[in-house]
Nucleic acid binder design. Sequence first.
DNA 1: TCACATTTAATTGTTCGCAATTGAATGTGG
DNA 2: CCACATTCAATTGCGAACAATTAAATGTGA
Lengths: 152, 152
Amino acid sequence: MARKSTAVDPLRLDNQICFAVYSATHAFNRVYKPLLDRLGLTYPQYLVMLVLWERDDVPVKEIGEKLFLDSGTLTPLLKRLEAAHLVRRTRSREDERQVLIALTPQGHALKEKARSVPQSILAASECSVSELVAMKDEIVALRDRLNAVIGE
Amino acid sequence: MARKSTAVDPLRLDNQICFAVYSATHAFNRVYKPLLDRLGLTYPQYLVMLVLWERDDVPVKEIGEKLFLDSGTLTPLLKRLEAAHLVRRTRSREDERQVLIALTPQGHALKEKARSVPQSILAASECSVSELVAMKDEIVALRDRLNAVIGE
DNA sequence: TCACATTTAATTGTTCGCAATTGAATGTGG
DNA sequence: CCACATTCAATTGCGAACAATTAAATGTGA
């Protein structure tokens, strides 16, 4: 037959890795939702808290570099975390342009309640740790190549 | 030493596959942006057009099932596509609850301009087709397991 | 047939995500 | 020292994404 096989049609939705990644992001979000509701966090807020639990008193810029987000996203998000008494925002004294983000005691304490989250996600993925690590490394490598092209 | 290795700390940002997927989604978006700007589409609008280029005159519900999106997202998006004269929205005569989405001639014609997009993405990924297909299949399988847990 | 449940889109309100701009602080070259 | 560029956060505006609700059409059982 003369028709092009749908299996290799480059415009077919099911053939697009970007849609696989896009829809997997939403699937993760839906699994995280009930877990993070108990912590009073959204998923992007949870990511910011992961950064802060690793290192505290960090400028907005640095959070943005780690999460690939800009101030247009982070400023209002951080204000909501401040309103929830999880972080404090203070101008740096050495460089008044920077705003430093520090955890409050409640912010630190929330880490303990968060410890069970990764395990629940692992269970939901029905996947071995080694498989997930391998996939993660492949996806990160792809992401970094894509990001490199943007800077070109 | 007594400290837990950071390599296996489950709360470490870099160890989370969800963040790999989340950040890869944004990286894809940034690569798509200049390509889709030329078509006058956003990325979610492009996904809807992919669905319609495969099969036309489809109820909103069906688009939502294919893209894992609900009417709260699709209704305003489809109204914007209608305002751009790419689709028409008409109530089904057999079932007045359904709204059928059909391509306009301009909507059909846009497919030709879109044909170069997948190739540009492939180039940006700096990856062989077979590698991408393998990754895509893994990610889809993970997504489907996650979605299955949500319905539990 | 009729009360009731279900299905389907639309609507409302909140939170991301980003482009573009603004304004203040800092750095740099002459 | 001073004009100028750069850096950083905040702001504005728009388009998703989703929970929760609403309203209309359809389906179902007694």
